[in-house]
């Protein structure tokens, strides 16, 4: 065994390498030509000042000026970055806990499960930009909006009803109103966790059922079964969802992305510089999370 290993290290490229490269080849081509090339162009743009003249695009070299402006000149950009960083972290954690919880519920057998699963999937289907956009526009008549997501603001008025219902019972009204306040906030996130719940359901179903049978035979409680079987074997999905949630929350329509889109229209060079600063920050964040969480991930082997 040892000998074989030694032998393999002498070879520059092994058979495994070649097969591996063949599998990822389509992605490598796509990455090179449809991702890296435009990205490099945009990096080049970010070091220039671009104006549109009669003869097309005029590029003027300015060095790091755009980046300097983004970091020190443009107070709004930096401020929005910090705001997003602050709000997103809590939101991501709540989404993660909530979606695991909902997926566990929906993975159980009970009457109406199919209905609730469909309901959970609806936000993915109805989450199209077009629908959200037109919903906001049309609802301007009713002045329901005000939140960035029209659906959520409608949802808020919906959970307001729940709040009233709870308060109408009368007792513990203070405690109940705080409670319902939080419940409302958590429920509003439902519109943003459709995909996570689906991924978790798929992940839960990928856990072989014989493991649970063993647990039952050994007399483990449900709580123990969860922590000893479900949680570790779900950890790859948790990693996946965590990364997805982080990226989704940073890339969905927040203030910075809006700012970048706006600048794309008239100040491409500055928009590119902003994008790169932003992407590098998110990339580092994702890599740190990946580094920490992937060490704890367990794969069934």
């Amino acid at each position: 065994m040892k000998k074989e290993k030694k032998k393999r290290t002498y070879k520059l490229i092994t058979r495994t390498d070649i097969i591996g490269y063949l599998f990822v080849l389509p992605f490598l081509i796509g990455f090179l030509f449809l991702f890296l090339k435009p990205m490099v162009t945009s990096v080049i743009y970010s070091f220039h000042k671009i104006t549109f003249g009669e003869s097309g695009m005029i590029m003027e070299k300015v060095g790091l000026e755009n980046y300097r402006y983004a970091l020190f000149g443009d107070a709004k950009f930096f401020k929005e970055l910090l705001t997003i960083g602050g709000t997103v972290v809590v939101k991501i954690l709540v989404i993660m806990f909530m979606s695991i919880f909902v997926a566990l519920l929906l993975n159980q057998k009970f009457p109406g499960r199919l209905f609730f699963r469909t309901v959970m999937f609806l936000p993915v289907i109805f989450g199209a930009d077009t629908i959200l956009k037109l919903f906001i526009e049309t609802d301007a008549y009713q002045s329901l909006s005000g939140s960035s997501n029209a659906f959520v603001s409608v949802g808020q008025s919906a959970t307001g009803f729940l709040q009233e219902l709870i308060q109408s019972f009368g007792f513990f009204s203070d405690m109940m109103s705080t409670f319902s306040e939080y419940a409302k906030k958590i429920f509003d996130l439902t519109w943003e966790m459709g995909i996570q719940v689906i991924l978790f359901i798929v992940g839960l179903q990928a856990i072989p059922s014989y493991l649970y049978e063993v647990c039952e035979m050994e007399g483990a409680t449900k709580w123990e079964t969860f922590w000893k079987i479900t949680f570790p074997l779900l950890s790859p999905t948790i990693l996946l969802c965590l990364i997805y949630t982080v990226i989704e929350n940073f890339n969905s329509s927040n203030e910075v992305v809006k700012m970048i889109s706006e600048n794309m229209g008239h100040r491409i060079h500055y928009a590119c510089a902003q994008t790169w600063l932003y992407s590098i920050i998110v990339f580092l964040l994702v890599m740190i999370i990946y580094g920490i969480v992937s060490r704890k991930t367990v794969y069934l082997d």
Binding site: I13, T16, D17, I18, I19, G20, Y21, V24, F27, L28, F31, L34, F35, K37, P38, M39, T41, S42, Y45, I243, I247, F250, N251, V257, I260, S261, M264, I268, A271, C272, T275, W276, Y278, S279, V282, F283, V286, M287, Y290
Partner: peptide, 26 residues
């Protein structure tokens, strides 16, 4: 586990992270 597996994986993550608007004009 080919050489550069991790690098390719990081490239995959990079494609998810960078906002699509960046590439649009090029």
């Amino acid at each position: 586990r080919f050489k550069g597996n991790t690098l390719v994986f990081m490239m995959v993550i990079l494609t998810i992270i960078v906002p699509v608007q960046t590439a649009q004009i090029p």
